[in-house]
């Protein structure tokens, strides 16, 4: 097997300052070419922080990062500013949750896309503008030629997110990071954007890491899923494995609490309790206080990362038992 395109090993991120926050605690991830990985978890579970670390977008002074992040064979954490500038947008690029805020309000869509193309490819004004038009057509913005000269505030939310995608893909990156790109959109637009992303991903052969808290969205687009809880990955596997046979009690609870496949008239199940504060590095299973299957050993030590099959891991003592039995 080839070396994976993205290889994150034992990534730990701490925010220092008045109060230390252990945002990410030993995350390992890998992503091959042309794969779509869903990073699933509730807010505050460290999904976005992991994404931002992948592009080194976190504030330098207040962040302590350890572990290793390698993308396309390059060590991201060791890059200097110039290498980083060339890397961002060219190798990896990102789309954001709120397209209204992620586009600069004083420049037209065309100018913003052209700017990125000129910087990375040294293209002329005319060539950059031509590329911008091509990108707007690619993301299926109607009357793309006129939209080039539109300001972000002149477009609807769905249009803006399409423009944002056009901007992110303008330099044909190998990897696209999507940070909850459909959360701010209404349901009908949401599905259009998801289908568009899926199609573009196949056409351009990109790898995508898709951050979401919505299992329904993950089902539409992902090949593989990693479920995060309190800064750790609790379970990884293919989409089918996670949805049909989740091993960890947390994704089990998540799936039980959605309307997909719930019985009519029955109350939806919920996961009791709230996520832990991240004031200290975890010394035991973070989910144990909310877990129906918690045992004494769950609160005594960190549960092991149990490898059930290649690409399928579960961080839970229960899985350890099942492996030991078989």
């Amino acid at each position: 097997m080839n070396a994976p395109l993205v290889d994150i090993r034992d990534l730990t991120i701490r925010f220092t300052g008045e109060r230390t926050v252990y945002a990410v605690n030993g995350v390992s991830l890998s992503l091959g070419e042309g794969e779509v990985l869903g990073l699933l978890g509730e807010s505050g579970s460290g999904k976005s922080v992991t994404m931002r670390a992948l592009m080194r977008l976190l504030p330098k002074k207040r962040t302590v990062i350890s572990g290793s992040v390698s993308v396309a064979g390059q060590d991201v954490l060791a890059m200097d500013d110039a290498t980083l500038s060339a890397f961002r947008g060219r190798t990896v690029s990102m789309i954001f949750q709120e397209p209204a805020l992620a586009l600069d309000p004083v420049y037209t869509i065309g100018q913003q896309i052209a700017e990125s193309v000129k910087r990375h490819e040294g293209a002329s004004d005319a060539a950059a503008r031509a590329r911008a038009l091509e990108m707007l057509e690619l993301v299926r913005i109607p009357s793309a030629k006129r939209r080039l000269d539109a300001y972000p505030h002149e477009m609807s939310g769905g249009m803006r997110q399409r423009a944002m995608i056009a901007l992110a893909l303008a330099c044909k990156p190998k990897i696209l990071l999507a940070d909850e790109p459909t959360t701010a959109l209404d349901a009908t637009v949401q599905i259009q954007i998801l289908l568009l992303l899926r199609e573009l991903q196949r056409e351009m052969g990109m790898s995508v890491i898709f951050v979401t808290h919505d299992i329904g969205v993950a089902i539409e687009i992902c090949d593989k899923v990693a479920v995060m809880y309190a800064g750790q990955i609790v379970e990884t596997g293919t989409l089918g494995e996670i949805v049909r046979t989740p091993q960890h009690p947390y994704p089990q609870g998540l799936l039980a609490s959605t309307v997909h496949g719930a019985r009519r008239g029955a109350r939806l199940q919920t996961i009791p309790g709230t996520p832990p504060s991240l004031d200290a590095a975890p010394a035991a299973c973070s989910f144990a206080p909310r877990c129906a299957h918690a045992q004494q050993r769950c609160t005594e030590r960190l549960p092991p990362d149990v490898v059930l099959a290649p690409g399928r891991t579960v961080r839970c003592v229960l899985a350890e038992d099942s492996v030991a039995v078989s």
Binding site: M55, L57, R88, Q97, L103, D104, Y107
Partner: peptide
């Protein structure tokens, strides 16, 4: 602190470009 500054950084703009343009 608005997202588009992060977006500009994510598309590879350096500190000087961000200050001058955005």
């Amino acid at each position: 602190n608005l997202d588009f500054v992060d977006a500009a950084r994510a598309s590879g703009a350096g500190a000087i470009t961000i200050m001058r343009v955005h």
